[in-house]
């Protein structure tokens, strides 16, 4: 067992990259029209031809696959970053209030046309602001990285954001708008189109760069804020950079795909034994595994035989929630 772990540890990133490519090609070749050549479709689509393969791959499957990968990467990375920053294995965008804050921001724009001048960017910017505000309030309220306090503060902020979101839903301009919003909140990457990538891709790059720039801080924070500060790290500034990076990732993904929960919670736990539990070495593998998991979940959603598609966010919650229960159980045993 120990040898297997060490072997995976050595080749973790190449293994994950290989798995990601595999999953992406399955996602591209999977759909209601069976025999479509992936490469033929992509090359036709790139040359601007309107063959059936070009349309199916280029307009439907490619955007969906890319979105699933990018959103998964954003969620996995932000989960790893938040857990490292808060020194808390239960931290997750959805559990510390970030997702709800982003949803509130994006929903407000959706309905009331705030930031109209920004065009399609408006929801993403509002999502980012919502996520950043929620995270900052959470940090302020918790005052430290102590697990119980972080979760309580996260719960409080989620509740406040949830209440405000209910108000927005309550005053929805019409029932269709409300239905649309509710479905969007459940989380999905279908029918989003390549336009969303214009928002998501830069957000992923900027958010990841901000978080990765603080790798050393995350490592030092393993031993607490005082030790990190004494090692020459600027804890306050670095924490703000990590919060901003996470807000970028969560704000953009929620504004495009709604809330897809528990990926950020699950992924770091699955990887920790293979990176020697080091929060700094966890980041890139977490992004890769997050991408893989969300893409696999999306393939599963498409493969289900129901008339109406199960939303991706509902599926991840169905899988993730029992995992959360198990984590609480494990923590409980540590204290009893």
């Amino acid at each position: 067992m120990g040898r297997l772990i060490r072997l995976i540890e050595t080749y973790l990133t190449p293994l994950l990259v290989f798995a990601l490519l595999l999953v992406a090609s399955v996602s591209l070749s999977f759909g209601s029209t069976a025999s479509v050549s992936i490469f033929g479709g992509i090359s036709d689509w790139l040359q601007g031809e309107t063959t059936q393969a070009a349309l199916i791959i280029g307009e439907i499957r490619l955007p969906r696959t890319l979105l699933a990968l990018i959103i998964g990467a954003a969620l996995g990375l932000s989960g790893a970053a938040l857990q490292g920053l808060l020194r808390n294995p239960l931290a997750e965008p959805g559990l510390v209030g970030a997702s709800q804050g982003a949803a509130l921001g994006a929903a407000t724009v959706f309905y009331y046309g705030v930031f109209a001048g920004l065009g399609t960017l408006a929801t993403a910017v509002a999502g980012l602001l919502g996520a950043a505000a929620a995270l900052l309030f959470m940090l302020l309220l918790a005052g430290s990285g102590r697990p119980a306090l972080v979760i309580m503060a996260g719960l409080a902020i989620s509740t406040v954001a949830g209440a405000a979101l209910a108000v927005v839903l309550n005053f929805a301009p019409n029932p269709y708008a409300m239905q649309e919003l509710v479905f969007w909140l459940m989380g999905s990457v279908s029918n989003r189109g390549l336009d969303s990538l214009i928002i998501l891709f830069p957000a992923l790059i900027i958010g990841s760069a901000l978080i990765l720039s603080q790798r050393r801080l995350l490592a030092a924070l393993s031993l607490g804020e005082k030790v990190a500060e004494s090692l020459g790290q600027s804890v306050k500034k670095g924490s703000h950079i990590i919060v901003l990076g996470t807000a970028c990732l969560i704000g953009a993904s929620v504004s495009v795909a709604g809330t897809i929960g528990f990926v950020g919670l699950l992924v770091p736990h699955m990887l920790r034994p293979f990176v020697g539990h080091r929060p700094d070495r966890l980041l890139i593998p977490a992004a890769l595994l997050g991408a893989i998991l969300v893409c696999v979940a999306d393939i599963a959603v498409r493969a289900m035989p129901f008339g109406q598609e199960l939303k991706l966010g509902v599926l991840t919650s169905l899988i993730g929630a029992p995992f959360f229960v198990w984590l609480v159980w494990k923590e409980r045993k540590r204290w009893l």
Partner: peptide
Amino acid sequence: VSSAWALTVTDIVAL
């Protein structure tokens, strides 16, 4: 002091 994660002794000393 406490470590939030189950790091190895060598990794902690290397910090």
